[in-house]
Simulated assay, not measured.
Amino acid sequence: MSETLSLLSLFSSSFLSATLLPGSSEAVLIALLLAGVGPTWLLILIATMGNSLGGLTNVILGRFFPLREQSRWHGKVTAWLVRFGPATLLLSWMPLVGDLLCLLAGVLRMRWGPVIFCLCLGKALRYIVVAAATIQGMEWWH
């Protein structure tokens, strides 16, 4: 039961971290890795799924509520998205900028297949790096 709640907390934190709401999915992932909750691959998968669904929520919001205000960040990010396409979403894990990338991908009506692939891959790579660094640190410490 407590493992299930831990995994649900990881999913929830990962989802919220990918939306405009604050979250700390990396901290939850690290805490669960240190506590030995579940296999590492499962923790990475759950964090990736939650974070990817949160990012896709931003893409959907962008499709329904296009951003009309032009800001310095809006112009730069839009130019990146137009130039590099969905591959830009490999950076969707970045704080603040990643949320804007996802929103603008929706505003620009990018195709779903490449958006989903690049967004999920970028978020998975981030969690793999966090987990690997945590495990490496645990091995070094012992």
Rank of each mutant, 00 (worst) to 15 (best):
M1Y: 06
S2Q: 14
T4V: 12
T4R: 10
T4P: 02
L5A: 12
S6I: 05
S6M: 06
L7V: 11
L8C: 10
L16K: 03
T19L: 09
T19Y: 13
P22V: 05
G23H: 12
G23P: 14
S24I: 06
S25G: 03
E26Q: 05
A27E: 11
A27N: 02
L29A: 07
L32Q: 09
L32K: 10
L33M: 04
L34Y: 13
G38K: 04
P39T: 05
T40C: 02
L42W: 05
L43Q: 05
L43I: 00
L45A: 14
T48Y: 11
S52A: 13
G55P: 06
L56S: 01
L56E: 02
T57G: 09
N58I: 03
N58F: 08
I60R: 13
G62T: 05
R63G: 09
F65Q: 07
L67N: 02
L67V: 13
R68N: 11
Q70H: 15
Q70A: 14
W73N: 07
G75C: 05
G75R: 15
K76C: 00
V77C: 02
A79Y: 03
W80T: 08
L81V: 04
V82A: 07
R83M: 03
F84Q: 08
F84A: 10
A87I: 12
A87W: 15
L90R: 04
L90Q: 07
L91D: 01
W93K: 10
W93T: 01
W93Y: 14
P95G: 06
L96C: 01
D99N: 15
D99W: 12
D99C: 05
L100D: 03
L100H: 04
L103P: 05
L104F: 14
R109T: 03
G113V: 12
V115Y: 00
F117Y: 12
F117S: 01
L119C: 06
L119Q: 04
A124S: 12
L125I: 10
I128H: 02
V129P: 06
V130A: 01
A131T: 08
A132V: 14
A132M: 09
A133E: 10
T134P: 07
T134G: 14
I135W: 09
Q136G: 12
G137V: 06
M138Y: 15
E139W: 14
W141I: 08
W141Q: 11
